[in-house]
């Protein structure tokens, strides 16, 4: 059975369609990534699945319960954490845990077990009496996650949980998400960090409120089959790009750091040879050039571009 099943989910704000007929399934224990630029409709979709926002159309079934019919039933079975880790800043770490435990109706033994679990999980054992306001970003975020899963929900929604957090803390946080998944918890997480998508079992790319692509990262990269990405390191990248854009076999070019990526509808060997000839013929010195595996960023840009067209 699917943990989450979404069918034609739609949300309109006046004339604006924020989420447009979204359809997908999330398996139990899966880490499911929602990828998309800001304003793509990721948060709106998540808020509907959590029962915070009424859908304009379509259905979302979470943990076997129809959100539209019984939002309160869904709320008992999920954990939710948004980009603003919502803790009470004037309360201490311990008080925050006790507060949310009380709201979730945890008592005595279970409260103590879960309290210790959250403290350990967030690495805050020795800082129980520090006010939440005085915690650094990474700690607050881990405590936020801990408070959201105090009641051991089988499904967890994380809306851009790693926004504004340093890379080390992000890595640490993803370790926690992997741990949840290993214990059978289903995690739906939105992000616009593409490196984070590599942690997800499957990824849905959302663009303009629509599902633009769905699959494992390997599957998404394979969508590039039949085409090649040639990475070019050249002395004058701007000139190189102009020359490449003029070539009929080059679909598009984009800048990747100091290099230029060209998507070419040719076999790798042939593509590399053709491009080298063209660039050197145009007077651009090529330092290094060769086919590369498409990164998720290539895929994302490609999908976004095609969805726009």
């Amino acid at each position: 059975m699917s943990a989450i099943s979404v069918h034609d989910l739609t949300r309109r704000f006046g004339d604006f369609v924020a989420v447009d007929r979204l359809t997908f399934e999330v398996r139990e224990g899966e880490i499911f990534g929602f990828l998309g630029s800001n304003g793509a409709g990721k948060s709106t979709a998540i808020r509907m699945m959590c029962g915070l926002l009424k859908p304009s159309g379509g259905t979302a079934t979470v943990g076997g319960i129809d959100v539209g019919r019984d939002p309160e039933g869904v709320k008992r079975r999920i954990g939710y954490m948004s980009q603003r880790f919502s803790l009470y800043e004037r309360l201490t770490v311990d008080q925050n845990i006790r507060f949310f435990a009380g709201i979730y109706g945890l008592r005595r033994d279970r409260l103590e077990t879960r309290r210790r679990f959250v403290l350990e999980m967030s690495g805050l054992q020795s800082r129980e009496h520090v006010r939440a306001a005085d915690l650094a970003g990474g700690w607050r975020q881990r405590l936020g996650l801990g408070c959201a899963i105090l009641h051991e929900p089988p499904i967890v929604f994380l809306d851009e949980p790693t926004g504004g957090v340093d890379p080390v803390s992000r890595r640490e946080f993803w370790r926690l998400i992997d741990g949840l998944s290993a214990r059978g918890v289903t995690v739906l997480v939105t992000t616009h960090y593409l490196d984070e998508a590599e942690h997800c079992h499957r990824v849905a790319i959302i663009h303009g409120g629509r599902l633009a692509a769905l699959g494992t990262t390997a599957e998404l990269k394979r969508a590039f089959h039949g085409r090649t990405i040639i990475e070019v390191h050249a002395g004058r990248p701007v000139d190189a790009m102009r020359l490449l854009d003029d070539m009929p076999d080059v679909e598009k070019t984009s800048v990747f750091g100091t290099a230029v990526h060209a998507v070419v509808s040719m076999k790798p060997g042939e593509a590399a040879r053709t491009i080298r000839e063209r660039l050197e013929g145009g007077g651009v010195a090529v330092t290094r050039l060769g086919p590369v595996e498409p990164s998720l960023e290539d895929v994302f840009l490609d999908v976004a571009e095609r969805a726009t067209q």
């Binding site: 939710y80 603003r84 709201i103 109706g105």
Partner: peptide, 11 residues
């Protein structure tokens, strides 16, 4: 602060 939204997804 956003805690109200957090409370809204609790029972």
């Amino acid at each position: 602060v956003g805690t109200l939204e957090q409370l809204n997804v609790t029972p």
